[in-house]
Structures are given as C-alpha cells and as structure tokens.
Design a binder for these strands. Structure first.
Lengths: 148, 148
DNA sequence: CTTGACCTTCCCCTTACAGGAAGCTCTATA
DNA sequence: TATAGAGCTTCCTGTAAGGGGAAGGTCAAG
C-alpha cells in the first residue's frame, strides 16, 4: 500500500485532520515521512496506530494512556498483566464516575419534582442551593479532582 | 456581620481562595468592597452567593449555568418554570452521560475479563483496539461533543 | 523591628483539540 | 499555459475552571 496524505490517513482512522496533525506534533503518532513539499505522509503502520489510538480514545483512555497502550502494543515482550491493569483501573474510574453522576441525577431529579415549574417564584431547587443546611459538608467534600 | 477577607469567605463557602478570586475576576461573584490596601472584602450577601455557586457546582452546573441560576435566584420575579427547565436539562445531560459511561464500562470489563493478565503477551484488549472489525463504525460515531 | 501569614497582580500550565490566517503546492480544466 | 480551487503547511488564539508560583505590598505579634 502506498503512502497516504494526512487526509486519507485521518479518514481511514475516523479522525479529524487536525487531530492527526496534533498527534504528530505531540509525538503520539508520528507521520512516517514528509513529501518533498513538506506534506505529512502516512504508511500502513502509522495509519494502524492512528486507528488504535482512535479506538482507545473511544474507551475513554487519555492521550497519555494511549501512549502507554501503544507502547505495550508495540513491545512484543510486554506481559498482558500491564494492559489488564490499565483496563481495570479505567473500569474503576468509570465505576466511580457512574456512582457520583447517578447520585447527582437522583438528587436533582428529586428537587425538580418538587418544583411547581409554573409562574410562581418559589422553587425548592434554588432554596436547596441557597440554604445553609450543610455548609460544612461542603468543606469535607471539596469537589473531587476527577471531574464529572 | 462584619466584612470578611477572601480567606474567610472562601472557607465559609467551602471553596479554595483561588476559586473565589477567579469568580470575582469573571464577574460571577464580585467582592462587595476593597480595603484601603486593596484587599477583597465580602459581606454576608457575597458570601451567600459564593455558597450558592459552590452548591450549584456540586450539582454539576457549569459556571455559565451558575450565572443564570444566580440571576434567577436574585430576581424575585422569576417564574420557577425557568429553574425547573435548567434542572431538567441537566438531568437529561446526566442521563446521557450515565448511559454512555455504563456502556463503556461494560465493554471494557468484558475485554478485561478475557485477558489472562499474566506474563503472556496475548491480550484481547490490545487486539480489540488494533483490529479492523469496525473501522467505519468509528466514522459514524466521531466522538460526541459532550465529553466523558 | 522583623518575621510570618496573608493579600495583590501577573503569567504560565493543564486537556485535547477547533478555528482561522497567511502562504505554499498540486491538479484539473478552459 | 494560466488560473481556480482544494489541500497542505506553520503559527496564533481560545476553550473550562481554575492550580502553581513569582514578585511584591500589608498586617499583627513578639
């Protein structure tokens, strides 16, 4: 298979051109060569890596994690243990996030349910946010690092 | 109640000082005054607003949404309808996120389960990301805007 | 009088790109 | 062969919501 332009490579991996250029720039997936005019060129291996990263991204892995996974994938000696570790860590992460979001949704749903949603101004949602009932609970739960 | 320094206000709202300064800077919650030396000073109302925003943030509202909620809260004429609309939109948003993350977690869990996780290098996780089975599915699902 | 805690502004860093400007290159068509 | 249009390049700016830290002013206590 011949070398591909950035557009073709991006298309085959299901990524925007800008993203592919970015991956090259940060050294995550380098273009395999440059044309005399300076155009990025991608061979089959590079295209493959782009696809790999695209999939890993769909599984919610960060670019740094993708880098690790690519390394593991490329290193034919790596033990599957390490990959599994990464995957399970991600599963844990997702589990946490799910629990938090689920709680959040329930609380918000409950508040919304008690709101008349008409022309009257009384609203339990605003009251809940304005009230001082658990001012120090907030202290103890200062917005976890892992956003969302 | 006397005016409070930024630290005291931050503490009472359960927010980092940097955050309170940031809210002032972007005009979300302005400090009510400045000391002769230029120190930010917060009165009870300002502190109240900080707490309000902190709570709204815990409910996953963006700063822009917090601004809207604050407006609604301050405007004694607003109909509760608008607040409810915002809340329900957020609930919808959370619902979407939950569904996506849940799917993701299940897929990843399934993959991890099939990985031996030992010294051998074969790993279905990496295989799944490297495989070409649904190269165009990726095309049709080009990473939704609503991240995570 | 000095130390240490607190405050100020200013600037860069983060994630993972998107949008756009200025300018070069390639191809197809008139 | 000239030119239009698509495609490529680099560079710059912006996003959300602050965090980290430098340089420097301020305040209360010992």
């Amino acid at each position: 298979m011949a070398l591909q332009t950035i557009r073709e490579a991006a298309l085959s991996a299901g990524l925007p051109v800008k993203t592919v250029r970015y991956y090259d720039e940060i050294g995550l997936v380098r273009s395999s060569a440059r044309s005399p005019a300076g155009y990025r060129l991608y061979d089959a291996t590079a295209c493959h890596k782009l696809t790999f990263v695209q999939r890993a991204r769909q599984f919610n892995f960060s670019l740094d994690e993708c880098r690790e996974l690519l390394d593991l994938y490329e290193n034919r000696q790596r033990p599957s243990r390490e990959v599994k570790k990464l995957a399970l860590a991600k599963v844990d992460f997702l589990q946490q996030r799910l629990a938090t979001l689920s709680d959040l949704k329930q609380e918000l749903e409950a508040l919304a349910e008690r709101c008349s949603g008409d022309d009257r101004p009384d609203c339990p949602i605003l009251t809940a946010m304005a009230g001082d009932q658990d001012a120090d609970t907030a202290q103890r739960r200062p917005r976890s690092k892992d956003e969302l």
